[in-house]
Structures are given as structure tokens and as C-alpha cells.
Nucleic acid binder design. Structure first.
Lengths: 237, 237
DNA sequence: CGCGATTTTGAGCCATGTCAATCGGAGTGG
DNA sequence: CCACTCCGATTGACATGGCTCAAAATCGCG
């Protein structure tokens, strides 16, 4: 029952945080993940089924991506779900109609519908907070359109990596300068609409210019300022 | 009161249709547009304000697009809203955070919240139908990601034009072979992430191959089958 | 008829793709 | 501990799709 009290306190805190920003903080995720026993674990490479539209799951650990495969082998990765993101077949991510694949070992916790509506049937503050999270997931899809349609390869790479950094920072998995990253250059290619080889060239170029190092599953920004400028679609200098 | 009865009958019919497909049919649009007096008209080029998040408006006539402008002049058009589509700051389109511009004279009808929830606070069948419309609008955003990330210029052009045709067909504004289209090559360019000049070349090429004619605000498919193949990302032949 | 917007064309360049090969590190079995 | 293997990263040579610049042809409209 100690954990019961604990979890209740965290829940309140989570509510407060959820109310503020568009995504969940580390504390929110911890709080929500202790709320119930329905935790699922997927191993790297497993497909996460998203058939039942009512389920709402919170990613508490690990990376996932949703992708679609064309008959001739081309692949587009639509988005990545990180700790603090929600898996929902109904909203946001659900509309991509692709396969959801665990990139690493993945843990998620189901959020029972009972938490979303109060006694009188009205919506919980938690529900509104989660809505905001789904909103920001959707916004990222539009960012992807902008990136793919208008950005150069360098800008797109910067934009994507900075976005990952910012999201990971919210859940305590990154700082301004670096984060651990399980993506291969092939993932980057299929995300940014580039060939693997060109991804390699772009990374080398950014490295040569002293902006960035990608190595050993670790992304390091040597010059966060310039990277942020690039990521916003501004030329360097 | 005749119109009262009339509109009520259409409403029922609209409900039936809305329940079936992911988008509204011509009859749905007609029915819904007669439901209330709150009709707005924008002239071509006007900006449609989307500040109030609660409002839900149905496009009953004309074309709109939502776009974002980069500081250096690049522009990405995220999507077009056609008759039967919904304007919502909260869902789908709202997350793009761009400007919504009337491409032609535009008419839309507000859908009052009272129609969305029944007496007991439960959701109307209409509300569910409209949800499905918003869903399909979201799906199109993912299609755009796929198009921009993986398709060649020709495939992307075919995909986009076939999509327009299919949507316009649902509201009786197109048949299998052609539709009226107010887009300039510049709009196509900013939608597909190409330069205006390249759009022109791609169109010429499709014309030369006997697949398509774009002229006088009219798009005509000379070979709908091949266009549909191209639009799906399959090579010709 | 004349003007602005749009479309069309041509020439040349650059970003990005393809193909082919090498390299490097991680795991595996002997 | 070594040899092997596999996957991912890296590099080079070359092809090409798509972009830029510049200009002419057309269209829509007052």
C-alpha cells in the first residue's frame, strides 16, 4: 500500500505536468506507468499490433517506429514513438496505416479508459493532457511534410535530429549536446527520403564542418547553436 | 416549414451516408449545409481565420489550402480542403500551424456543437461520421509524407491528381476522366516539393506519354488506368 | 490592344541516386 | 585466442533527376 500512496502522489504530479506542455515529462511517464499493472514488453524487431482502436498505450521505455513498405521495396518511416508518446490506433499515429515496429526492446503501459472520464462522464484533466500529447504527435507529421518537401538534406537531417533531442530531453534521456540513438543510417534514410549513401555523405559533411558526430549509437552536437539554426531551415552563417 | 421538413429529411439521409464512408458525399454536404443559417463566404485569396478551436465548419463550395512559409520564401502547401471537408483548428488540419487560404471563392457552413452530442451527452452518429472525415483528412497527411519521401516526381504528380479526382468524385465534382481544377503549376510545385519549372516538365512528359492533359483549369486523364498505377507507386508497364 | 500572370523551353549545374567495393566492429564457433 | 561471418559504415566513380537562370510564348483580362 506504500506503493499505492506513492503512485497516487505521482499521479497528481503527472496531472500538473500534463496540463502544462504538449508532451509528457519524465515524471509524468513514471507516474502513469505505475498506475496499473497492464504493462507490455516487446523485443527489438517485434511488430506492435494496433488492431483494437480503443486501446491507449503509453511508451515508457524504448523506441518504436511506424513505416509503410512499397511493393518495390521502398520504405517510408512516418514517425518514431519515444518514451512519453502514446500508441493509439484511433488518433494521430493510427492514420498512417503502416506497421508499428519495435526498434529496441520496448515497454508500454496501457492507460485504462476509466482514467479518461470522470464519474459524471466528463473528461479528466489527464484526458486533456493526453489529447495535447496526441496533438503534438500530429504536429510532427506536418513538420515531416515540411522537411521532406522543402528542406535540403542537411537541413532535414538537422531538423530531425534536433527534434529527437528535444523530445528525449523532456523525458530526461538527452541534454543539449547529446543522446543515445539506436538508429542506423538506413533508418535515417527511410525517414528523410534519402539514399543510405547520401545520408552517410551528409553526416560526414556535418562532421567535417564541426557541427555533429554520430557514432556508436550516440549522437553528439558539437555546435548546438548552428544545428538549431539549420534545423529551422536557416542557412549556416 | 416546408424547408424545415425537407432539411430534416436530408439530415437523416446525410447520417446514413456519413456512417458508411470516410468522406461526405454530395448529398451529405447539401444536407448539412441546409442545417443552419451560419454560412460564411470568403473571396479568393482571403485568409480563413482558425483561431477559435471549438468551431467546426464544413466546406460546401470552393477550394482552400493550408500552407506554411519559410523566412527565405520557400512554401509548403500541406493540404487542400474541398467541398465535404471539415475545417477544424483542433483536429487534423489544425496541427499544421500554417495559414489557411481560400484558393477560390469559398463557402462553408458551421456545424453547431448541439448536433454532435445527444440529450444524454452521448455522441451523435453524425459526430462519429464527422470523426471519420477528420480521420481521412489525417490519413492524407501521411500519404503526403509517403509521396514526398519516396515517390518520383511523376508518381507524386499522379498520386496527387488521382487523390483530388477521387475526393471530388465523392461530392459529384469529378468523374473518372476529368475535373475542374483551379491550381496553378506553382501550387502543384509547392505541394509536391518541386520547382515550378520541373512541374511543367513532368506535366509535359505525362502529356507526351498520352496519360494526361492539364489545361484551362481542367485536368483530364487520357489513360486513367496507367495514371492510377503510377499514383500507387508502380512503374508504368 | 497591352499588361501581368502563367506556362513553356533551353542550357548548364548541383544535389542526390546507383553500382561496386572496401573497411570495421560485434558476435560465433572452433 | 583466432578465423570467420555478418551487418553497418565508408568511399569512389559515375549517372541522372531536379534546380537555377534567362528568355520567349501564351493566356486572361481590363
Amino acid at each position: 500500500m506504500a506503493s499505492q500512496v506513492m503512485s497516487s502522489g505521482l499521479f497528481e504530479k503527472a496531472l500538473a505536468c500534463v496540463g502544462a506542455a504538449g508532451s509528457l515529462s519524465k515524471h509524468d511517464v513514471e507516474a502513469l506507468s505505475t498506475l496499473n499493472e497492464r504493462v507490455e514488453v516487446f523485443s527489438a524487431g517485434a511488430q506492435v499490433q494496433t488492431a483494437r482502436r480503443e486501446r491507449l498505450r503509453l511508451v515508457t521505455s524504448g523506441w518504436t517506429y511506424e513505416a509503410r513498405l512499397l511493393p518495390d521495396g521502398r520504405r517510408q518511416i512516418f514517425h518514431y514513438l519515444l518514451p512519453g508518446d502514446l500508441i493509439s490506433a484511433r488518433y494521430g499515429a493510427g492514420a498512417a496505416r503502416g506497421s508499428l515496429i519495435a526498434l529496441t526492446r520496448l515497454e508500454c503501459a496501457e492507460i485504462p479508459p476509466s482514467l479518461l472520464s470522470g464519474a459524471g462522464g466528463e473528461r479528466t484533466r489527464l484526458a486533456e493532457g493526453l489529447d495535447r500529447v496526441l496533438d503534438s504527435q500530429m504536429q510532427r507529421t506536418y513538420e515531416a511534410v515540411l522537411r521532406l518537401g522543402q528542406f535540403t538534406a542537411q537541413e532535414g537531417m538537422a531538423n530531425f535530429l534536433i527534434d529527437l533531442r528535444d523530445r528525449l530531453t523532456k523525458v530526461g534521456l538527452a541534454d543539449r549536446f547529446s543522446f543515445r540513438c539506436p538508429l542506423t543510417q538506413e533508418h535515417l534514410a527511410d525517414t528523410l527520403g534519402l539514399s543510405v549513401i547520401h545520408v552517410n555523405r551528409v553526416l560526414r559533411q556535418l562532421r567535417t564542418e564541426g557541427l555533429l558526430v554520430v557514432k556508436l549509437g550516440q549522437v553528439t552536437f558539437l555546435d548546438p547553436n548552428k544545428m538549431e539554426m539549420l534545423a529551422a531551415g536557416n542557412p549556416i552563417e
